[in-house]
């Protein structure tokens, strides 16, 4: 047993998000329901995986959880407090993101070192020498050569950029990490390393993860519970082992059926 509690650390209550798409030639607006009423608990110490169709609202939900975007209606709570009422800096010390697209989420004019230590600088109180030591330690764990310290995002490979985003999320030792496809740009070996690291950190510091991924083998490897989204709704939510053994929803079944398997020698 993983020792996961059932106490919700974050709660999402009937969250809706509607986008206004600027209309075509005549300027009439078309509305798009990216989230059509989602309720979900994130329990302390668990890995909750969010899978589902492209465009089903996973990234939108993660941005709302992070307080980066306001829901059209509904509310998100952190330890019972509405996220909208918590000071930005306090919230950031506890909840950190890893975004889906590291290219647009990393400031191109900052070096690797500056990017990774940013959350510590914002939180304040950590001397520069210790910040550097922690940056080095994380680079090492993430198998990034030390020469990368002074590199800029444009000088890195896709997987290296992704690892910078992961290091930045972990450096301040937050309680909750919201990961949007954190390993999809990584080769399998680094992916294995990152997944193992995330799980070890959880064991050590009791971290909680919301983990968005379309890789079902990855989800099965780490998730305690899995939520399946389709068209702005959660259509299935269950313990990982139960869901993989017997998916209830039609879309989940299709998802499991189209996963590619590798014909490997054993």
């Amino acid at each position: 047993m993983t020792g996961t509690g059932t106490v919700p650390v974050m709660e999402i209550r009937d969250v809706r998000r509607t986008y206004r798409l600027s209309g075509g030639m005549f300027g009439q607006a078309r509305m798009l329901d990216a989230l059509a009423g989602v309720s979900l608990d994130l329990r302390r110490g668990e890995v909750l995986a969010l899978v589902g169709e492209s465009g089903s609202g996973k990234s939108t939900l993660s941005r709302i959880l992070l307080g980066l975007e306001a829901p059209t209606s509904g509310e998100v709570f952190l330890d019972g407090m509405p996220v909208s009422s918590i000071a930005r800096r306090k919230f950031a010390a506890r909840v950190q993101p890893v975004f889906q697209d590291p290219y647009s989420s990393l400031n191109p004019r900052k070096t690797v070192r500056q990017l990774i230590e940013m959350p510590l600088v914002i939180a304040g109180g950590v001397p520069a020498s210790e910040r550097l030591a922690r940056v080095r330690e994380l680079l090492d764990i993430l198998r990034m050569p030390a020469r990368m310290l002074d590199a800029y995002p444009s000088q890195m490979s896709g997987g290296q950029r992704q690892r910078v985003a992961i290091a930045r999320a972990l450096i301040s030792r937050p309680e909750i990490v919201i990961c949007d496809e954190p390993t999809s740009a990584l080769d399998v070996s680094v992916q294995a390393e990152v997944l193992n690291l995330l799980m070890e950190l959880r064991a050590e510091f009791g971290l909680t993860y919301l983990f968005i991924s379309h890789d079902l083998a990855v989800v099965e490897y780490i998730a305690d519970r899995v939520a399946v989204m389709q068209e702005g709704r959660i259509v299935e939510l269950d313990e990982a082992e139960r869901l993989f053994a017997g998916p209830a929803h039609d879309y989940t079944r299709r998802l499991l059926a189209s996963a590619l398997t590798v014909p490997l020698a054993t």
Binding site: T2, N196, V262, A265
Partner: peptide, 21 residues
């Protein structure tokens, strides 16, 4: 080594080990 790092359906952390190079 690369092939041994591929996660496969049915593997669970704590029970199976995903090898990293």
């Amino acid at each position: 080594a690369l092939l041994s790092s591929v996660p496969r359906r049915g593997m669970r952390w704590g029970r199976d080990t995903l090898g990293a190079i």
